[in-house]
Design a binder for these strands. Structure first.
Lengths: 198, 198
DNA sequence: CGCATGTGAGACATGACTGTCTCATTCAAG
DNA sequence: CTTGAATGAGACAGTCATGTCTCACATGCG
């Protein structure tokens, strides 16, 4: 019985540590293990008992990011309604985790050599599939590849997260900025999406 | 006289070292000073004689990136013709340096606390001014702030540079991808830019 | 109370990168 | 040829984060 309790408590603590680590590394991606521990309110020793090294911590954060991305993807129902609305829902769902995503995005640039987690491949494929659906339905233009659109979405999410973190843009505009730029671009076109924009 | 020659040779070497450092750090942003030296074909000692430490090297790369951005900005003639065409020219001019820009962009995220080089402020202002001009002329929509559009352009440049580096998109599409997404977005609008697209 | 478990604090060794130094070599100019 | 300058190679200490360890303390349970 004490063994059960042990596991449950560890899991709770682990999640809390993970969340605060994500919050910290979102701002300071080079934060020390000691800083991560302090941010979580625990000692470096305890942090090490839960995550065997920085590597393991980043891996766990990656799993967390993947899980939240997949949850956002599922909640956005990418196969329902117009692809346009699905993109809107998707960005709105991802917004709360954009900081973590930006951290993992830049972290992936450093790994270079190693193969990336297969979870990202699934997510990439889902998002690319959403763009592809919009193309075949005639909503989206076809001269931009789904792979590029997916990559561009990541870039815009990271840019927006950093711009918000540094106070260059207002947090409340986050979703609107990304969705409107991604969907409609910067040019005035007289499309419905822009007629009712402020 | 020998003193003059000394200076000139140093300048040439310095530029060569800077270029190869940029090329290397574009791919591996965490490369060692030793790796940077080898990539430039010189020893670590000589590298240290030209740049007093990694800090100085990154600063010099920053100056290089700023200079090339300003050159691209000037060559793009942002005040001539339509803002749309000016954006096209700008992206086309920046494209060769997108890798370096991406490195410096992610590097700036790490500095966090320190103040950024004023050169970036000038460039930001120039680019934002271009977007603002497009807004006042009626070409661009006004519900997206010039500051966000500038940030988004950086993000798209970095995303595209990374996507190309990892082989996810074709290098030849670089400018087209960025310009078309930024200007027109992903939705089909029947605008002239999309009618003649493949 | 006695005991066990989880924890914090801190010491310790390790590894990686950095910055500095010396010394031998090369190369071009006088 | 001789000299001076730049370079490459390597040694060296310093720094910083990491990973591991020990020990003392506290909390909870029997």
């Amino acid at each position: 019985m004490s063994h059960m309790r042990y596991c449950r408590l560890m899991a709770v603590d682990r999640d809390h540590v993970l969340r605060s680590a994500a919050a910290l590394l979102t701002r300071r991606s080079t934060a020390t293990m000691d800083e991560v521990a302090r941010a979580a309110g625990i000692s470096r020793a305890t942090l090490h008992r839960q995550f065997a090294g920085r590597e393991a911590l980043v891996r766990a954060l990656e799993e967390l990011g993947i899980a939240e991305c997949e949850a956002a993807l599922e909640a956005a129902r990418p196969d329902e309604g117009s692809a346009t609305d699905a993109v809107r829902r998707l960005v709105a769902r991802i917004e709360p985790h954009a900081g973590l995503l930006a951290f993992l995005y830049s972290e992936n640039q450093l790994f270079e050599g190693e193969e990336q987690n297969e979870g990202w491949a699934r997510i990439d494929e889902s998002i690319a599939g959403l763009f592809r659906r919009g193309q075949t339905s005639g909503e989206f233009r076809i001269d931009l590849t789904p792979a590029w659109l997916t990559e561009a979405l990541y870039g815009l999410l990271a840019s927006a997260a950093w711009a918000v973190a540094e106070g260059r843009v207002a947090p409340k505009d986050f979703t609107h900025m990304i969705v409107e730029l991604l969907l409609g671009g910067v040019r005035r076109t007289g499309s419905p999406a822009q007629r009712n924009a402020t």
